[in-house]
């Protein structure tokens, strides 16, 4: 449980960090909260020669809301911790799904250090935030030697630990379009114990108006080697009355999109089953919330 030797760097700005990354090349690894990377290093499954710790970079912190034309957005700095996500009232008002999911990540000690940027950038299919970001249709900002670019969360994940991020780039910000007021949301996660990754988890975001579903978005966690954005599942709900037939169709579409692997959490058949259970529960709860919030707005 002792990592291989490494050099430690602590840049004070994003420019300095990307500069270091360019200079040190593939022997360097960026460190955010460290809760994925450091265990890997202790097991010597990862042995970077240089660690570039981002914690002193103030511009990578914080949660800001902008209300522009064509809908506003929330911008979250990559080094914002899970705890800070949970503590943000602004975020709870605008995108309550994030708080609901963040409270199901690991335990309070981990959440004080673990960051949203690390969680989405690492590409670990067990992480909760990637699926959530796909559900919310977030975009990731990547800063590198050639400047800044944006990649949609739904386009970002290639396979386990392999993402659209280039070697010299740092994932700096997450931009989330503001969901419609009064939307329904839910993150349902089955796990073995506190601190565990999901056996299966489902994120649902939808709107309800006049008893019918307006838009719907569905993503699933730890049921393939990447997060799974189940576009067909969302499509099956959108425009429907959210009744049994629509839900069955959405679940069938989601199950067709996942590809779980057997592990200590259970065999494939079990994971497929509970993926469906989690999604049904998430749809039901999101629907209930959207209906309630729609009723509140009417009053």
């Amino acid at each position: 449980m002792i990592p291989a030797p490494f050099e430690y760097h602590r840049p004070a700005s994003l420019a300095e960090a990307t500069g270091l990354l360019a200079e040190l090349g593939e022997d360097a690894h960026v460190l955010a909260g460290g809760h994925s990377l450091i265990p890997m290093m202790k097991l010597r499954l990862a042995a970077p020669e240089h660690l570039i710790d981002l914690q002193d970079i103030a511009e990578l912190k914080g949660i800001a809301r902008t209300d522009g034309e064509g809908g506003g957005e929330i911008v979250i700095g990559a080094m914002t911790t899970q705890h800070e996500l949970i503590a943000s009232d602004e975020l709870a008002r605008a995108v309550p799904l994030i708080r609901e999911a963040a409270l199901q990540i690991a335990d309070p000690q981990v959440r004080y250090l673990g960051t949203i940027g690390g969680n989405v950038a690492n590409g670990d299919p067990g992480n909760d935030m990637p699926g959530l970001m796909q559900c919310l249709d977030a975009a990731f900002e990547l800063d590198g030697p050639n400047g800044r670019r944006r990649v949609a969360a739904r386009e970002f994940y290639r396979s386990a630990y392999v993402t659209a991020r280039e070697d010299g780039e740092i994932l700096s910000r997450i931009r989330i379009p503001l969901p419609a007021p009064g939307h329904g949301f839910a993150y349902e996660k089955l796990k073995r114990k506190i601190g565990d990754y999901a056996t299966a988890a489902a994120a649902v975001l939808l709107t309800v108006s006049g008893g019918r579903c307006g838009s719907a978005s569905v993503a699933l966690t730890n049921l393939a080697d990447t997060p799974v954005f189940a576009a067909d599942a969302g499509a099956a709900l959108a425009g429907s009355d959210l009744g049994a037939a629509a839900v069955d169709a959405a679940v069938a579409a989601a199950l067709a999109a996942i590809d779980p692997a057997a592990d200590n959490r259970g065999p494939v058949a079990f994971k497929q089953h509970v993926a469906g259970v989690m999604l049904r529960r998430a749809i039901a709860r999101a629907t209930e919330r959207a209906t309630e919030r729609a009723a509140e707005q009417t009053v």
Binding site: L190, R192, T199, R265, G266, A269, F270, H273, V274
Partner: peptide, 11 residues
Amino acid sequence: HDHWRIWKIAE
């Protein structure tokens, strides 16, 4: 009697 083994009984 972890989750999947209980599920297996029910199954």
